[in-house]
């Protein structure tokens, strides 16, 4: 059964077709969400919502893009919505903490100087560092970078998912890498982990 037949089936309420679609794309959806939200539980919950939306909106799918492109688009939009929501929540939490005199957690990466050689950085610290760096990227750079790095998608498909030109994708990914490198370099210099 090709993917358009799957969609046809889902449009007619065929649960079996839906199950095949979910099993085909679940890992890629969880990976994409994970690349953006960096939290396994959130990523899996998001992926569930993504497929519910796929099921709910399958009837609107016109077939002018690949099914995977459509599913990726839903996944990136939902992930962005979650991080925007979390950002707002953190903003109000920090206001609350400022006024109530609570401690201000400026950065999640502690700025512990000291002479730790690189070998002593734990896996957890390393992944916190990278996630923090990715989180600092502007949204579009973050999406393009995630789709390219986590999903290894070709630039052309990223352009279709994001509905931008190929040249824009190239430029976004180039800038994302430069920004990540800059942040990792600052941390390397300051021995922030």
């Amino acid at each position: 059964m090709d993917e358009y037949q799957l969609i046809k089936g889902i449009q007619q309420g065929d649960r079996k077709a839906f199950q095949v679609l979910v099993e085909t794309y679940q890992r890629m959806v969880v990976n994409t969400c994970m690349g953006i939200v960096h939290n396994k539980v959130d990523a899996e919950d998001l992926a569930q919502d993504v497929f519910l939306e796929v099921f709910r909106t399958a009837e609107n799918f016109r077939g002018d893009s690949k099914v995977s492109t459509w599913v990726y688009r839903i996944a990136t939009n939902r992930s962005l919505n979650l991080i925007r929501k979390n950002k707002r929540k953190r903003f109000f939490q920090s206001i609350e903490e400022t006024f109530s005199g609570g401690k201000n957690r400026g950065s999640e990466i502690s700025d512990r100087r000291g002479d730790q050689p690189d070998q002593n950085i734990t896996d957890q610290e390393r992944s916190d560092l990278l996630h923090h760096a990715i989180d600092q990227l502007p949204e579009k750079q973050r999406i393009a970078f995630t789709l390219n790095k986590y999903e290894e998608l070709p630039y052309q498909q990223i352009a279709e998912i994001m509905e931008i030109s190929l040249a824009s994708v190239e430029s976004l990914i180039h800038r994302a890498k430069k920004n990540l490198q800059k942040q990792l370099y600052n941390c390397y210099k300051k021995r922030c982990v």
């Binding site: 890992r27 969880v30 990976n31 994970m34 690349g35 396994k40 690189d118 950085i121 896996d123 390393r126 992944s127 560092l129 990278l130 996630h131 760096a133 790095k149 986590y150 490198q181 990792l184 370099y185 390397y188």
Partner: peptide, 17 residues
Amino acid sequence: LVFLRKGMQVIEDEKKS
């Protein structure tokens, strides 16, 4: 370069979920 490579390796490790 070593620091950078290990940092970026995080992504490769996460993909093998």
